[in-house]
């Protein structure tokens, strides 16, 4: 296992727990996206993983070693890019790359040149004169050029325009295609998560809720919509029908675990005998995720974390 969390808990002084009892294994070679609303504990989790923060209880392990015991040999196999990356601002881009290169035996000069070209970075510009997007690209350069086995990205796309996102996505897809790479990223950007990640985990108030392989989760779920003249939702809706909303323009929800579409259709018709124009289809990630977030607003997570489907 390249990344493991064991009962990881972080409580800031006199505050609520920012991360609560997180236990999770990241499959090597997978791209894991940590999702959740602002303040859910995503950045804290990443900082604990990289030993930038001390846990209150439990531990995060990287390459089989507790984060606090990471040595330079491990760091040489680890890349990290954060939306608020601290960079040596007084350096020019070319100086920054020359500064990093000796620290990483696996640094690849050809790859560096290719990425510099792809990112169209001005080599003689000081880092503090770069735009936000260019700074992120410089940070990516500093993390990708030695082909780390594990890449940790904290909100890598936040605040970037579409062209910048596309360039970063291109570089990341190429990186993933080169071999077994494990990526742990936190992100709000559903479009990018959907393209990059194969596994997701959702944090809510520091607790891990829904988690699993995206294709598995989506293949068990269905997006439902239909028309009905009944203005009120029936009282006896199953607990895994997330975020039922009814309006004159249609009634919608996400059914999280659907073994059988015909049974789902029957369950709908028994509650709404006048249901018309019924549509049942696999949801995209964004619809699924947003309906889940709305669901846990109304039904907060219980003590232990849950995985769906079982």
């Amino acid at each position: 296992m390249s990344i493991q969390f064991r009962s990881l808990t972080k409580q800031y002084r006199a505050g609520a727990e920012a991360v609560r009892d997180l236990t999770l294994d990241i499959v090597p070679g997978s791209v894991f996206a940590l999702m959740g609303r602002n303040g859910a504990g995503k950045t804290t989790t990443i900082q604990l993983l990289l030993d930038l923060l001390l846990p209150t209880r439990g531990e995060a392990r990287l390459f089989g070693v507790p984060a606090a015991k990471l040595c330079p040999e491990h760091r040489q196999r680890l890349g990290y890019v954060s939306e608020n990356q601290r960079l040596p601002d007084w350096m020019r881009v070319d100086e920054f790359l020359r500064f990093l290169k000796p620290m990483y035996p696996a640094w690849d000069e050809l790859l560096t040149q290719r990425l510099v070209k792809l990112f169209a970075l001005p080599m003689t510009q000081r880092l503090d004169r770069l735009s936000r997007g260019q700074r992120m690209k410089a940070a990516f350069l500093g993390a990708l050029c030695y082909r780390p086995d594990v890449l940790v990205l904290d909100e890598p796309f936040s605040g970037l325009d579409s062209v910048m996102r596309q360039d970063l996505l291109d570089a990341l897809i190429e990186f993933l295609g080169e071999g077994e790479r494990t990526v742990f990223l936190s992100s709000h950007d559903l479009g990018e998560v959907e393209r990059l990640a194969d596994t997701i985990g959702v944090l809510d108030h520091g607790r891990l809720g829904l988690h699993g392989n995206i294709d598995d989760l989506l293949s068990h779920a269905r997006e439902v919509s239909f028309l009905t003249a009944t203005p009120q939702l029936p009282a006896d809706l199953p607990a895994d029908w997330w975020n039922p909303v009814t309006s004159p323009h249609g009634t919608t929800f996400t059914a999280a675990v659907v073994p059988d579409e015909a049974a789902l259709a029957a369950a709908i018709h028994s509650r709404w005998p006048d249901a018309g124009g019924l549509t049942i289809r696999p949801p995209g990630l964004s619809r699924y995720y947003i309906d889940y977030l709305r669901h846990i607003e109304v039904h907060p997570l219980a003590g232990s974390s849950t995985a769906l489907p079982s």
Partner: peptide
């Protein structure tokens, strides 16, 4: 190839492999 499709569609090669 997996890499060609992944790069062209900008999606995770694991998804293409599957």
């Amino acid at each position: 190839s997996v890499r060609e499709i992944a790069a062209a569609l900008r999606i995770n090669p694991n998804t293409v492999q599957k």
